[in-house]
Design a protein around this nucleic acid. Sequence first.
DNA 1: TACGCTATATATAATAT
DNA 2: TATATTATATATAGCGT
Lengths: 203, 203
Amino acid sequence: MSRKNVKSSIIKDVTSRKASHKTRSLGLLKKTQEISVLCDVDACAIIYGEDDQVPLAWPSSEAEVRRIINNYKGKSQVGQLERQLDQQTFLKQTVQKSEEKLARIQVKNRELQMENIITDIMAGRSTLEQVPFCDLGYMIRMLKERMKLVKNRISNWGNNINSNPPFQNSSASRDDNLKINSSLFHGDGMMEAITSRNNHTSE
Amino acid sequence: MSRKNVKSSIIKDVTSRKASHKTRSLGLLKKTQEISVLCDVDACAIIYGEDDQVPLAWPSSEAEVRRIINNYKGKSQVGQLERQLDQQTFLKQTVQKSEEKLARIQVKNRELQMENIITDIMAGRSTLEQVPFCDLGYMIRMLKERMKLVKNRISNWGNNINSNPPFQNSSASRDDNLKINSSLFHGDGMMEAITSRNNHTSE
DNA sequence: TACGCTATATATAATAT
DNA sequence: TATATTATATATAGCGT
């Protein structure tokens, strides 16, 4: 159960190399996501496998990857600034805007889906087996974060006996622990994408 | 000298954020290099700063980044389509597809939001007063549909005495009534928006 | 602002199942 | 071969200089 150090050259053993590739790929994508979220910047990573037809990449939306890459190419080329607003450029901008919005909404959508799925699982309406494999990683991370929050709350309660207990029948306190993402979702500009329909739907 | 955990949203403090960005950028580039060397695969990462003209990237040679990126685009279906169609036609189609997809996802997003809100209200975590006025119409219709389904279930039960009663303590059956939309949501192609890493955005 | 230090969180190689 | 479980290496937040 030890762990050697040293990282200088190709791992010769094929099995180990593949295992390492898998683990590190996930780690790298996670790190990419993290820096992007924490520091609020564009970031992307592309990782090939020895045989994979399609490489792993983050962001998972290819449109988003293309947006970032194009930005990179644009910024790293000399004298690209004098583009004129001809038809093509206009269309490109439209594409980009659409894709940006799409990517943002996809992320929100994904979070909402996870929220619902987790709620269902907790209520026994669904089981983990029904969660698409590709979503498990993301979901597990969400759950781990929640566990942390719950644990923090419990330990804080131990240290600070005056405050409310971490769990009680009052829904307010408990739900702060379990539904943190939900409150985030419902709070801010979540409704932005939808409100265009209101005029027609009012009854 | 402690170190907080939690990595879920933007670091608000500007100084910390920049520090984190710097450290993590180096870390990410290092990880990128490592996986590339250890596992003998192509990999690249591009990280922007809030203001940087030229983003950080690995490999450091821009030509190499280009090579890897082009390879990525070449392997993707979108990249192949891009070559077949002339630029403008492609862009127009992309705009249209993006917007169609956007619209579809917005609808789904809305449904998911309503789902969450209704769940919260039923669980006493929220009240109707907190629902944005403009959403009430939509929500009322959703609820009416559920009522219909519940009523159907009740009358069917009357006609067909052998089947299960419409309400009982077994959570499975009861939840079928109350969470019909949920099961619809989670069932079919809900995840399509996310799996695009594998099959690309084309449908 | 940038750099160094240290405690802690995280990633991951080795191993077991 | 895949997945789970450690033990350890590595990354990095918070703080001081």
